[in-house]
Design a protein around this nucleic acid. Sequence first.
DNA 1: ATGAAAGCGCTAACAG
DNA 2: CTGTTAGCGCTTTCAT
Lengths: 352, 352
Amino acid sequence: MDPAAGRREPTMRDVAALAKVSTKTVSRVINGLPGAGTEVTERVRDAARTLGYRPNLTASSLRRSDRRSATIGVLFEDLSNPFDAALLRAVEDRARHSGVLVLAGSSEDDHTQQRELLVSLSARRVDGLVVMAAGGHQDALQHERERGTPMVLVDRPPTFGATDCVTTTNRASSRDAVGHLAALGHRDIAFLGDRRTLWTSQERYAGYVEGLAHAGVPLRGELVRTDLHGEDLAAAATTTLLDLDRPPTALFTAQNLVTVGAQRVLRERGLHHRVAVIGFDDFPLADLLDPGITVVRQDVPGIGRKAADLVLARIDGDTSPPVHAVVPAALVHRGSGEIAPRPGPGSLVGRQ
Amino acid sequence: MDPAAGRREPTMRDVAALAKVSTKTVSRVINGLPGAGTEVTERVRDAARTLGYRPNLTASSLRRSDRRSATIGVLFEDLSNPFDAALLRAVEDRARHSGVLVLAGSSEDDHTQQRELLVSLSARRVDGLVVMAAGGHQDALQHERERGTPMVLVDRPPTFGATDCVTTTNRASSRDAVGHLAALGHRDIAFLGDRRTLWTSQERYAGYVEGLAHAGVPLRGELVRTDLHGEDLAAAATTTLLDLDRPPTALFTAQNLVTVGAQRVLRERGLHHRVAVIGFDDFPLADLLDPGITVVRQDVPGIGRKAADLVLARIDGDTSPPVHAVVPAALVHRGSGEIAPRPGPGSLVGRQ
DNA sequence: ATGAAAGCGCTAACAG
DNA sequence: CTGTTAGCGCTTTCAT
């Protein structure tokens, strides 16, 4: 099974011996540094090729003064979530073009797992981190940051200082979305949110409240459902809402899985053309559904690029003050958010 | 910006000095090896905590005899594709539970990029690789494998020897899908495939041919469209097919983006309830479309787990003969694949 | 149970 | 232009 069993990996010393030069000269040639004669360079290259020599970045970075591993850590909630995946890809692209590779991990929004991954990444001496922080306290992240590791938080800001961060217009876009629904005449607009410990959930809820206030629509507490982590909880909450005496005529679903869970229930009940929906976060095929789902779309590649740029700049020694970059999101009209309220068989107008 | 500017990272020597022991003793304590007194152990732990010592896996792996980096490389086509993302997550989970981290990269099905990533991973001395090979030759992969790096190919098999691989039942499931359509009475079943250089495309096409033959349906060459890389090409091909004098009554779309592209055109033309579709590869929300999209669903987490298990076992010295694991896919009936053929306004039965 | 010396593969700092 | 020496942080080997 092992085609190379027994053979020892050639080192610079082996190359040096074969080319009859010093290891330092080999080092110069391999790294493309000046100070190596044309003829010697050729001899070294030949020797390296003959032996099948591969540079060892691990040894090199240990000895080099900059101590760089040319590797960054990416610590997201769930690499299989389309949002996280798109973000990872954007970061990876940027990093790759700078010769930097990405060590990726999923924290599952769990502090223990986040901390363990942080320790693992730290032991491998990554040059920097791009992190989607787990909800709640950020002790482990703060600790790592305070050791000096360059760090950029994405999607959610740090609760500690001196750290860059890239987020989107959660509050303003949520306000706009709710305003859009109110402008159509909706007065019973429900809020369905992810975990309350998440900053994005809080911001989107705040935007919902502001949007209602701005439109002069009173907030009905029973229309607010939070801590809906995953499609199933979102579906259950939607069911409960639709069963109210005075059910909502519009839903603002504040996360992609929540939107999908709600959508499932609406279709089961045949209400997808009656109840308006605007979701936060776009998702694949949102435009192919009937009606198309109106969403607040984040510029995910933009966020990833910005985060990567920031962390790479910090690694390169940029010491300017910390930045909180805000990448604008946009409301994408597809139909579900443009459904007007109307009294129907399920409506209770007149009963009030 | 840098909270730790100037400070030097503490080493085992620093810990040893503070605890008044040798570095070897510190090494024993940090690694939980036997041969360290209870009292000394305590002293070392205190010193490490006081100094904020972090073990350096990079230095450790350089010196250790097993030379392990506790890191594997994952080289897929596009980490933002839901299929790749789900696979990455499955591999990462398995690896993490073995204390192994994942260096991830996207090859974009490009040989140059694949080779460059391979070189980067190799320089970082990853212990093993999980690779979705780019189409065409596999010279760089073979070369890396022949140096002795444990390697598992996923989704597509190696064209060289002595290498594990995990794929799904591409051919058999495609045959079944086409058989399912034929059993409903379809005789004009189109094939829409991704790049012909990809083994999966070839296998799925072979299954299509077998399925037709088995059902006694003659193959019409003009209904076969390949090299559809991406939604747009798939959409264009679908348009062409529908404009034929004798258009297909059913489509077998052999990759997830192809399915989506075709679906877009069918909906534009209002044919999504008339033309049957079975897609290879499931995708999010396929069940929420109207009709739901019937697909061949791969067991993506199963494939990822198996691949991770194989590479981790090889790293641990398993020298049993190479394995080609085949993880079964299943036909998921959702509606689009259960549409029967019928003469309609667009049909040309009778004109022939 | 503990430590001293050597060295993993490489590069910094200096020679020549 | 090229080489020598030392040593990155750690673990091996062998001694005590």
